[in-house]
Design a protein around this nucleic acid. Sequence first.
DNA 1: TAGATATATTGAAATGTTTCGATGTTTTTA
DNA 2: TAAAAACATCGAAACATTTCAATATATCTA
Lengths: 91, 91
Amino acid sequence: MELKKVEKISKALADPNRLQILKSLHKNKACLYCSEINEIIELAQPSVSHHLKQLTDAELIIAEKEGREVKYTLNNKVIDQYVNFLTALKV
Amino acid sequence: MELKKVEKISKALADPNRLQILKSLHKNKACLYCSEINEIIELAQPSVSHHLKQLTDAELIIAEKEGREVKYTLNNKVIDQYVNFLTALKV
DNA sequence: TAGATATATTGAAATGTTTCGATGTTTTTA
DNA sequence: TAAAAACATCGAAACATTTCAATATATCTA
């Protein structure tokens, strides 16, 4: 994995609200609708939308449009790649 | 691992210069002197000092004073704990 | 012990991030 | 097809991070 990508993922993980979103996705078998996330995170809707964009841009989650709703899913593959980079860092 | 700690480590990893320092530590069998890091990173000395502090505060590296020099070592244990948190996030 | 060397701290400018109200876009439904 | 619902985008305020010159501190050496 490229350093630029590691940096982007780290940035996405470097916020308490975004970590909360990821934990909630984990609890809910990896997927949640945007409206459900809006209920969990105590921020205004545009702020939650911003955080979901950061996570999506880092590819930590995948957004799928379903009508006028959006379903978010954890991207296990990218988490694995990030973990592999970190593991390779050790001696 | 506490969310606050995950956030701190993620922040420490969210910078290209700090990732470069970690990669260099890996290449050099996990340890480097501050002066060597100053040569690798193309920033002024106080900036490098600042980045080393971020990494040390996150416990990703360990600082040991040796006379008037400081030796930095990768902290494999904390990297492992961080990796475990991320792995547990997957479904 | 005075000067040199290695690193840390301070303070300030530049830049980036977070947050929200207002508003825009898309899709559903009455 | 007009109104409602779900989400995204914009713009600005508040806050945090990065960077460096100047300076401080600690340790070594002549």
